[in-house]
Amino acid sequence: MERSSASMWRKLNSRYNLVGTECENCKTLYFPSRIVCKNCGRQTKMRDKTFKGTGEVYSFTKIHVPAEAFREDAPYTVAVIRLDEGPMVEGHIVESDKEVKIGTKVRQVFRKMLVEEEEGLIHYHFKFEPA
């Protein structure tokens, strides 16, 4: 995850709110956003698309040996979520009294993803919790 203020600022929409894109020409949905539609090429007519934030677990794994930035978080679960609208997105699964399985229904929540050193920025991001 980039740590500069500018790159963080540019991506706030898609980090806070699952804002992707939709090709108005062929109705294909994308997350993360794309500028050019894979189907339409030069005929692409993209617009922003905010996904509902609900879906189900397509696959998941538990991270016990994390990257340095997530040292305090381990062990934690990362999953591939198939959003109700279709696109797949990777996301952290937050604490839950429910066991995570393939097919578990999830909903988007708002959490801290990364906290820079003592004087740095706090990066907020969508994560998912079992619904």
Partner: peptide
Amino acid sequence: PSHDEDAATIAVEAAR
């Protein structure tokens, strides 16, 4: 709070 919750994340969930 969970390790990844703070007053801002709680405020956002309530606000939504």
